[in-house]
Amino acid sequence: MIEISLQLLGFIAATVLVVVGIAGMLYLDNLIKKLIAFTLLSDGVNLALVSLGYVQGGIVPILEPDASIFEFPNEAALIFGPGIVLTNIVIGVSTTAILAALIVVLYRRYGSLKASKVLKGDRE
């Protein structure tokens, strides 16, 4: 029996985000909507990494005055996940920029944002 904690809820929300992202990328026709779905997927992965570091009754991982060095590591939340998320956000921004640029080029070329038309090579 898995204890229902904030962490589990975080994982569920992350999974929902990932699945919505995958569904949007697969089933939607508009390229901009596909891009939005992609960012949702990346947000879901980030949320999973952040909720990985959740500690029941933990504290914020910043050394405040009068904290103890030896108790601190056991109480504080895991910082590694958010650290990875920082990198992931940067990569997400770069990827989104490149995808958006590609979409702009495709729109200039085909005059449409529909993936089906772009794939067929129709031009308006």
């Binding site: 898995i2 962490q7 994982f11 569920i12 992350a14 999974t15 990932v18 699945v19 999973a48 990985l52 570091g53 500690v55 991982p61 601190f72 590591p73 056991n74 109480e75 504080a76 895991l78 910082i79 590694f80």
Partner: peptide, 16 residues
């Protein structure tokens, strides 16, 4: 995806 996230959780050392 959900089960893979849950498996991730067991493999991480707690705390700093």
């Amino acid at each position: 995806v959900f089960s893979s996230f849950l498996q991730l959780e067991g493999n991480v050392a707690r705390g700093i």
